[in-house]
Design a protein around this nucleic acid. Structure first.
Length: 670
RNA sequence: GCCCUCGUAGCUCAGUGGAUAGAGCAACGGUUUCCUAAACCGUAGGUCGUUGGUUCGAUUCCAAUCGAGGGUACCA
C-alpha cells in the first residue's frame, strides 16, 4: 500500500536527501570543486506557495556559466531525479526551483516513524567522542541564577548529542579546591555555630563563607577606597578640562573633543559608581557594632584565608580533614538541585581531582620552552595575544588556567575526544582563547575545543538579575518561585474547568513542579544562547508563545483525546492505519512531524538548543490549528478518525521526545 | 588604549547569502450547544543603528562609524 523505498529514500531528512539528488544532478554541469557548496543551497521554503523546499543554486550557477539562470534551472530540473518523492519541480522568479513533497511519500514516512522507538530519526553516520563541560558551580557557595544557563544548556547539548548516537561524557568541573575553601575553613575555625552546623551543615558553611567573604571584602575596600577616590578626582578634573575646551572650528578636532568629553563623562560615572559600591561595603560593616568588632579582631583575615587555602593544598592534616568533612554535604546539596532540575553528569571531576597533576603540567610547558617567567610569574605567551596566560603565580601557587590545562591533558589521555565543549559564560572568552591556543601548543591539534558561550540573565532594568537589595538570586528560591507561580495557575485553571476540578492535590503539585521547572529551563533554552535575556516569570509561564507551558499543553490536549476516546495508543500503532492528509492543517502537521531530525541536526550544528525550541513551537502551533479544525473522535469516518489519531499520537511522541532533549518533562493532564 | 559581543515592530526576542523580514506581549476585531478557550483566527505596526564595499541577490559576509554591554598579568 505504501510506495517502497530504496535505502536512499527512507529518510525523513529531506534536506540531506535533496542535497544528494542535487549533487547528482549538478555533476557534469558545475565544476567539481563547487558541487558541495552549490548543493548546500537547498533550504526549506519560507512560504508554502513556494512548496516545501527550494533549490537556490541556479542563479549562482547561471552567473559562473554565463547562461540565463532560468535556463540553468530548467536544465537542473531536467537532470534532477526526485519524482519518487516530489511533485514535478517548478521554476519561479529569477531561477528558484520549488519542490513539494508527495503526500503518499509523507504518509509512508509517518507510518515508518510510528513503528519506530526513535520516530524514524536515524543516528548519525559518523559517531564522535564528545566531552561536555557544564554547570561547574563552586561547592563553597550555594548555586545562584548564574548557574542556570550553563547547567541547562549544557545538559540539553549533552542529551541531544547522545540521542544522535554520539559518545558523550558529561563532566561537572566543580570548584572544590579554590580560595573559597580557605575562607570556609577560616570561618569554621573562628566563627562557627556548632548547633547550626549540626542542624544544617551546608547552610552554616554558606553563612560562614558569606561572612568571611564580607570581611575580606571590607579590608580590600578599605585599601581600595583612597585609590578609587583619587581616580574619581582625576576623572572629575579631566571632565572639567574637557568641558573648557573651546570649539576649534576644525571639524576633526571638534569631533575629537566631543569624544574626549564623552569619555570623560563616562569615566566619572563609572568612578562614582565604583566609589559608591566600595563605600556601601564599608558602611555595612562600620554601621554594625557586632561586625565591626569582628573586623577589628580579624584584620588579617584576607591573608589568613589564603594561608588556609595554601595549607590545604600542601596537605595540612587538619585542613584536609575539614575539607573531607565538608565535601559530602556540599555535594549532596548540589545533587538535590540537579535532581530537581533533571540535570545529570557522567563525571564530577572537580579542581581537587587535578591537584596532583598541576606541577607536572607546569613542568611540561616550561621544559618545552613554551612558558617563561615574567615579573616572577610563569607565563605562556601566545601568538597574537598581548596578554600572557599565567600558569604559576609569583608566590608559587597555581591558577585556574593551570587546572584547565591539566584537565585537558587528563581528558585527552582518558577519552581521546574529538571535541570538548565548554559551556561557560561569554565573559571568559579570553581565557578560553588562551587555553585552546595553549592546548594546541601542547600538541592537541586534532581535538575541536569549543567555548559554548552564553549571555547574562538580566532583570527588568537591563542589568544582571539581582534581588531588590542587590544580592544574587539563589537558584533554589528561583525554582521555588517558578513552581509556586505554576501551582497558582494550575489551581486556577482546574477550578475553572466547566466539568469541575479534575486534579487531586497531589496531581496538582506534580503538574506545578513539572510546569514550573520546565518553564524556567525552556525560557533559557529558547533564547539564542549568545545573547543576554530578560528574566520574567510571567513570560516564561505564559500559555501563548514559545514556552514550555504551551508545548506541555499541546501534549496534554493530545493525551486527553486518547483518554476521552478510550483509545489505546499502542493498539492503534499496531493497526496498520492509513493516514490521510486531506486538509492543509493535517499536511502541515505531518510535514512538521517529519522535520524533527532536521531540527535536531540544526540544533547540534552550532550547539544551539533554541533551534530545537523554535521547531517545537512551530510543531505545537500546527497541532493547535489542527486541533481547532479537525475533529478527531468525531471525524466523519472511522478511517479518518484513525488517521487523525495517528497524527495525534505522533505529535505527542514528537513533543515528548523534543522536550526530553531539552531536559523537560510532560504531564498527561494539566 | 586594545580585544570580544550586541544594535531587527511600542516592549521582549527569533531569523540558515535568497522571493513580500517573523513570533509572543501590548493595541484593535472575531470564534465556545464541538476532543482542555491555559486555545484558535484576523487587523495594524519595520529606514533590520548609519555609511560604504563584496555579490546575480545582503538583516545575514567585509570595512568604517555611532551607540550599549563585557573582557583586558598573578580571583575563578
Amino acid at each position: 500500500m505504501f510506495p517502497t523505498f530504496d535505502d536512499c529514500t527512507v529518510s525523513m531528512n529531506f534536506r540531506s536527501l535533496l542535497r544528494e539528488r542535487l549533487t547528482a544532478a549538478l555533476a557534469g554541469l558545475a565544476p567539481e570543486a563547487e558541487l558541495s557548496s552549490l548543493a548546500e543551497l537547498v533550504v526549506p521554503s519560507q512560504d508554502p506557495k513556494f512548496g516545501d523546499y527550494q533549490i537556490n543554486c541556479a542563479m549562482a550557477l547561471g552567473k559562473s556559466l554565463k547562461r540565463p539562470p532560468r535556463e540553468v534551472a530548467q536544465e537542473l530540473v531536467n537532470r534532477l531525479k526526485v519524482d519518487d518523492f516530489c511533485n514535478p519541480p517548478e521554476i519561479a522568479g529569477p531561477g528558484f526551483i520549488n519542490l513539494k513533497l508527495k503526500d503518499d511519500y509523507l504518509v509512508g514516512l509517518l507510518a515508518a516513524a510510528s513503528g519506530d522507538e526513535r520516530l524514524g530519526i536515524a543516528p548519525v553516520a559518523r559517531k564522535k567522542q564528545y566531552i561536555v563541560d557544564y554547570s561547574a558551580p563552586n561547592v563553597a557557595k550555594p548555586m545562584h541564577v548564574g548557574h542556570i544557563r550553563s547547567s541547562v544548556i549544557g545538559d540539553s547539548i549533552y542529551r541531544t548529542l547522545k540521542f544522535q548516537g554520539h559518545n558523550v561524557v558529561g563532566d561537572n568541573h566543580i570548584g572544590d579546591w579554590g580560595t573559597q575553601f580557605g575562607m570556609i575553613i577560616y570561618g569554621f575555625k573562628h566563627f562557627r555555630d556548632d548547633a547550626a552546623y549540626r542542624a544544617d551543615p551546608v547552610a552554616e558553611l554558606s553563612r560562614l563563607y558569606r561572612l568571611v567573604n564580607q570581611l575580606v571584602g571590607y579590608f580590600e575596600a578599605k585599601e581600595e577606597l583612597p585609590k578609587l577616590r583619587q581616580k574619581l578626582e582625576y576623572a572629575t578634573a579631566a571632565l572639567a578640562a574637557a568641558k573648557n575646551v573651546a570649539p576649534a572650528g576644525d571639524k576633526n578636532a571638534d569631533k575629537k573633543n566631543a569624544q574626549a568629553l564623552k569619555k570623560a563623562e563616562s569615566d566619572v560615572k563609572s568612578a562614582t559608581e565604583a566609589v559608591g559600591e566600595v563605600e556601601k561595603k564599608l558602611a555595612a560593616i562600620d554601621g554594625d557594632a557586632a561586625l565591626s568588632a569582628l573586623a577589628a579582631k580579624h584584620s588579617r583575615i584576607g591573608a589568613a584565608s589564603l594561608e588556609e587555602t595554601a595549607k590545604l593544598h600542601s596537605g595540612d592534616e587538619e585542613n584536609l580533614k575539614l575539607w573531607r568533612e565538608f565535601m559530602p554535604p556540599c555535594l549532596e546539596a548540589l545533587e538535590e538541585t540537579y535532581r530537581r532540575l533533571h540535570v545529570t553528569f557522567d563525571e564530577t571531576l572537580g579542581e581537587s581531582f587535578y591537584h596532583d597533576r598541576l606541577a607536572a603540567v607546569v613542568e611540561f610547558y616550561e621544559q618545552k620552552g613554551l612558558a617563561r617567567e615574567s615579573d616572577g610569574a610563569l607565563c605562556i605567551f601566545l601568538p597574537g595575544q598581548d596578554v600572557p596566560m599565567l600558569i604559576r603565580k609569583k608566590d608559587g601557587a597555581f591558577l585556574y588556567a593551570t587546572t584547565d590545562l591539566a584537565t585537558i591533558q587528563y581528558r585527552m589521555e582518558r577519552w581521546k575526544p574529538d571535541a570538548v565543549l565548554y559551556v561557560v559564560d561569554h565573559r571568559q572568552s579570553l581565557h578560553f582563547e588562551h587555553l585552546f591556543a595553549a592546548a594546541k601548543l601542547a600538541g592537541y591539534e586534532g581535538c575541536d575545543f569549543r567555548h559554548i558561550s552564553f549571555g547574562t540573565v538580566l532583570g527588568k532594568d537591563g542589568r544582571p538579575y539581582k534581588t531588590r537589595s542587590g544580592d544574587t538570586v539563589g537558584l533554589k528560591g528561583l525554582l521555588d518561585e517558578a513552581v509556586e507561580r505554576a501551582a497558582t495557575i494550575v489551581a486556577e485553571n482546574d477550578e475553572r474547568n466547566p466539568e469541575g476540578p479534575q486534579l487531586s492535590a497531589d496531581e496538582r503539585r506534580r503538574v506545578a513542579e513539572t510546569v514550573g521547572i520546565g518553564a524556567l529551563k525552556y525560557a533559557d533554552l529558547s533564547q539564542n544562547r549568545t545573547s543576554d535575556y530578560e528574566f520574567s516569570y510571567d513570560k516564561m509561564l505564559a500559555m501563548n508563545g514559545n514556552t514550555a507551558t504551551y508545548m506541555q499543553y499541546a501534549y496534554a490536549r493530545v493525551r486527553s483525546i486518547f483518554r476521552r476516546g478510550g483509545v489505546d495508543a499502542a493498539a492503534l500503532r499496531a493497526k496498520n492505519v492509513s493516514i490521510v492528509l486531506g486538509t492543509p492543517a493535517e499536511r502541515n502537521l505531518a510535514l512538521g512531524l517529519l522535520r524533527c531530525e532536521e531540527a535536531i541536526e540544526l540544533s547540534t550544528a552550532d550547539f544551539r538548543p533554541n533551534q530545537l525550541t523554535t521547531y517545537l513551537f512551530e510543531l505545537a502551533n500546527y497541532y493547535s490549528t489542527f486541533f481547532e479544525q479537525c475533529p478527531v473522535l468525531k471525524a466523519e469516518t472511522s478511517e479518518l478518525r484513525d488517521s487523525r489519531l495517528m497524527l495525534c499520537d505522533l505529535t505527542a511522541r514528537t513533543i515528548k521526545l523534543g522536550l526530553s532533549l531539552l531536559g523537560i518533562d510532560v504531564v498527561e493532564q494539566m
